[in-house]
Design a protein around this nucleic acid. Structure first.
Length: 576
RNA sequence: GACUCAGUAGCUCAGCUGGUAGAGCACAUCCCUUUUAAGGAUGGGGUCCUGAGUUCGAACCUCAGCUGAGUCACCA
C-alpha cells in the first residue's frame, strides 16, 4: 500500500513503529507474557488492608485511554475481564539518567490500542480509584490503525461506535470498544453449555453428522450446492441433520444430539442468516408428549441458570418459562382466535375460510398448507408466553408420525414464544412404508411447483426398513433462542460474524501497466490516490485538467516532485 | 424482489433557501507529579459513497448505481 493512501494517524503510527524498532524495542515480541492477575479480579478483591497480596501484580491488555502529564501519567488498560487504571511515573519507569523510555516510548510512540504488559503494585488514588502503580512496562503488540474512541461516564456512553455495518463487518472493533458487546456472546455460550450439560446428565450422546450431504434432506429449503472434485459429484451443505441422527437411533443409540450449523440459500433479514445453528435431539422409546415435558424442563433449567429466575424481559414484555407451558392443538388455536372450526374441512371449504379471513391462496396450496397459513396469519403472534402448539396437518410434516387418533394430523408440536417458533418436535415416523409414500407425495408437490418440497432419501428409508424404535425428536433454533434470552431483535446481534455483502474493491492495474505508458513511478501513486486505479480510466480525460490535478496534488501534499510537462500528460492519455 | 430512510475527518455528528466544509473526541507540538467522558495552549487532517445531469455555482436539487438499516414479500 502506498504511504499516501494512509490517513495521517496511520502514517504517524507507522513512523512510531519504525522508531521503536530503531530503539531496539520489538513491537511484536514472541515470548510468553506471565500474567498473574486480571483487571476485574483486582477491582473486586483489592482493599487497603490486603495491599500486600497485591504488591506484585502482572497483567496485560490494550491501552484504551491515556492522560499524560509531565512526568506522570494515567492510562486505562482493558483485558479479557474489564478495564483498570494504571499509573506511571517517569522516575519509576526510568530510574537511571536516561528517561527515553518514558518521555519518548510511552508518551510519544505508544498509542491507544497498543497491547502492553505491566508489572507493579495495586493502590488506591486520591480520588479513590483502584489502580496499578507500574514499575515496568512491556510492549506486546503495536497497533497501527486508530480505534474509534468511546467514552463513558456514570453509565452514559459518549461517541458510541454504533454504525451496524461497521460493527458487523469489523466485529473485533465492536468487541474492543463497546464494553457490553461481549455480553450477548458470553450468554450464548452459557446457554449452549447449559443445554449440553442437561442432555449429558440424562445420558444422551453428543454426535457429529455430515455437513456435506449428497441429498439435502430433513427439511424443506433451498440448499447451497457445491462440487466434490475427486468424486465428481454435486454435494449440498446440509439444510438439516435430522435424517442422519435418526439413522443413529436405528443403529442402537438411545439418545443422540447435535449442535449443528445448517445452511439455507434463502433471504436474509432480522431473523434469517444463511448459516445458522440448530440443536436437534432424538430419544428412543419416547413420544411427543414426553418430549413436551422434556422441552419445558430443559427451557426452565436454561433460563434459570442464565438469569437466576424463570422470568425474562423481552421487548418490554415479561415472559415466564416456569414449567409446565400451555398446550393447545393447532385446530383449537384457530378456533380460539377466529371462531372457526376447520377440523374435517375439505380443501374448497378451507379456501373459502381463507378468503373470508383475507388470506391469499394459490393453486399449489394443499389442505395442510392452508391450515398452516390460517394459523400463521391469525394465531401465531398471539402466543407470547411459552405455548406448545400441537397436532399439525399431515401434509406439512412428511417426517412425522400420524396422530394416534386422527390420520389427517401428525404428532407434532412447535413451541411458540413471543410469537415466534423456538422449537419443533415430532413423534418420529418410523413406518418405512408410510415414510416412502410421504416422500413420493413430496415429489408430487415438487413437480406441482413447490420448490420447498423434500427430496427422497432412499438410504434413509432403507434404514427404517431395518426397524427404528419409536422415537421422539426435537429441534431448537439456537440463534432465535439466544435472541430471546438476550433481548436482541436481530440475528446479527447474536452472531459474531453475520453474513454481509462483500464490499466491491475496484481493482487497480499493476505498476508495469502504468510504467509502459511512460509514467514515472512516483506519479503512479499520485494517480492512484486521485482515483485513477486503472490505465483505461485515463482515456478521454482533458489533459489540462489532469495536469492541474497532478500539480495541485504535488503542491498540496508537499511531495516536491518535478511536475511533468503538459505534453507528457497528454501523451499518457492518448497512448493508453 | 418492492418500498422508505441513511452514507460529510480515524469515531460520533452539525451543515439554514444551492454561494469559501464545521464541532467534540482522536492525532501532532509545547507546558504540567494523582488525573478520570476532556488539565491548559496551539495546530494539522476532507474523493462531502460513486457517476451523470441541472446551474454562473452542488455536500445540498434530479437521475442512475454501490453499501447499510427498517418494513413488506419469501422462509413449516
Amino acid at each position: 500500500m502506498s504511504h499516501l493512501e494512509l490517513s495521517e494517524q496511520e502514517q504517524v503510527r507507522r513512523e512510531s513503529l519504525k522508531e521503536l524498532i530503531d530503539l531496539g524495542i520489538n513491537p511484536y515480541p514472541a515470548e510468553e507474557y506471565p500474567v498473574t492477575h486480571y483487571a476485574n479480579d483486582i477491582l473486586a478483591n483489592f482493599n487497603e488492608e490486603k495491599s500486600e497480596e497485591f504488591a506484585e501484580v502482572c497483567l496485560a491488555g490494550r491501552i484504551m485511554t491515556r492522560r499524560i502529564m509531565g512526568s506522570a501519567s494515567f492510562a486505562q488498560i482493558k483485558d479479557s475481564t474489564g478495564r483498570i487504571q494504571i499509573y506511571l511515573r517517569r522516575d519509576d519507569l526510568c530510574p537511571e539518567d536516561d528517561k527515553t523510555f518514558y518521555n519518548k516510548v510511552f508518551k510519544r510512540l505508544l498509542d491507544i490500542g497498543d497491547i502492553i504488559g505491566v508489572k507493579g503494585d495495586v493502590f488506591k488514588t486520591k480520588t479513590g480509584e483502584i489502580s496499578v502503580h507500574v514499575s515496568s512496562l512491556t510492549l506486546l503488540s503495536k497497533s497501527i490503525r486508530p480505534l474509534p474512541i468511546v467514552k463513558e461516564k456514570d453509565g452514559k456512553i459518549y461517541d458510541a461506535f454504533t454504525d451496524p455495518e461497521q460493527r458487523y463487518r469489523q466485529r473485533y472493533v465492536d468487541l474492543i470498544v463497546n464494553d457490553n458487546a461481549k455480553e450477548t456472546f458470553v450468554k450464548r455460550s452459557r446457554i449452549i453449555n447449559a443445554m449440553r450439560s442437561f442432555f449429558n446428565e440424562k445420558g444422551y450422546l453428543e454426535v457429529e453428522t455430515p455437513i456435506l450431504q449428497p441429498i439435502p434432506g430433513g427439511a424443506a429449503a433451498r440448499p447451497f450446492i457445491t462440487h466434490h472434485n475427486t468424486l465428481d459429484i454435486p454435494l449440498y451443505l446440509r439444510i438439516a441433520n435430522e435424517l442422519y441422527l435418526k439413522r443413529l437411533i436405528v443403529g442402537g443409540f438411545d439418545g443422540v444430539y447435535e449442535f449443528a450449523k445448517d445452511f439455507r440459500n434463502e433471504g436474509m433479514d432480522r431473523t434469517h442468516n444463511p448459516e445458522f445453528t440448530v440443536m436437534e435431539i432424538y430419544v428412543a422409546y419416547k413420544d411427543y408428549k414426553w418430549m413436551m415435558s422434556f422441552t419445558e424442563e430443559m427451557m426452565e433449567r436454561v433460563v434459570l441458570e442464565l438469569h437466576g429466575k424463570t422470568k425474562v424481559e423481552v421487548d418490554g414484555k415479561e415472559i415466564d418459562f416456569k414449567a409446565p407451558f400451555k398446550r393447545i392443538s393447532m385446530i383449537d388455536a384457530i378456533k380460539e382466535h377466529t371462531g372457526i372450526d376447520v377440523s374435517g374441512m375439505k380443501r374448497e371449504e378451507l379456501i373459502d375460510v381463507c378468503n373470508t379471513l383475507g388470506i391469499e391462496t394459490d393453486e399449489s396450496m394443499g389442505k395442510g398448507k392452508l391450515i398452516d397459513e390460517i394459523f400463521g396469519e391469525k394465531c401465531e403472534h398471539h402466543y407470547i408466553q411459552p405455548t406448545f402448539i400441537t397436532d399439525y396437518p399431515v401434509e406439512m410434516s412428511p417426517l412425522c408420525k400420524k396422530h394416534r387418533d386422527n390420520p389427517e394430523l401428525t404428532e407434532r408440536f412447535e413451541l411458540m414464544v413471543n410469537g415466534q417458533e423456538i422449537a419443533n418436535a415430532y413423534t418420529e415416523l418410523n413406518d418405512p412404508i408410510d415414510q416412502h409414500q410421504r416422500f413420493v407425495e413430496q415429489m408430487r408437490l415438487s413437480e406441482k411447483g413447490d420448490d420447498e418440497a423434500m427430496f427422497i432419501d432412499d438410504d434413509f428409508v432403507r434404514s427404517l426398513e431395518y426397524g427404528m424404535p419409536p422415537t421422539s425428536g426435537m429441534g431448537i433454533g439456537i440463534d432465535r433462542f439466544v435472541m430471546l434470552m438476550t433481548n436482541q431483535n436481530s440475528i446479527q446481534e447474536v452472531l459474531f460474524f453475520p453474513q454481509m455483502r462483500p464490499i466491491k474493491k475496484r481493482e487497480a492495474d499493476s505498476d508495469e501497466k502504468f510504467l509502459k505508458l511512460g509514467i514515472a513511478q512516483e506519479w503512479i501513486t499520485v494517480l492512484r490516490d486521485l482515483g485513477y486505479k486503472k490505465i483505461d480510466e485515463l482515456s478521454g480525460l482533458n489533459h489540462n485538467k489532469l495536469h492541474q490535478q497532478l500539480c495541485g496534488y504535488n503542491k498540496k501534499n508537499r511531495l516536491n516532485l518535478v511536475n511533468p510537462p503538459k505534453e507528457e500528460v497528454a501523451k499518457w492519455i492518448s497512448e493508453q
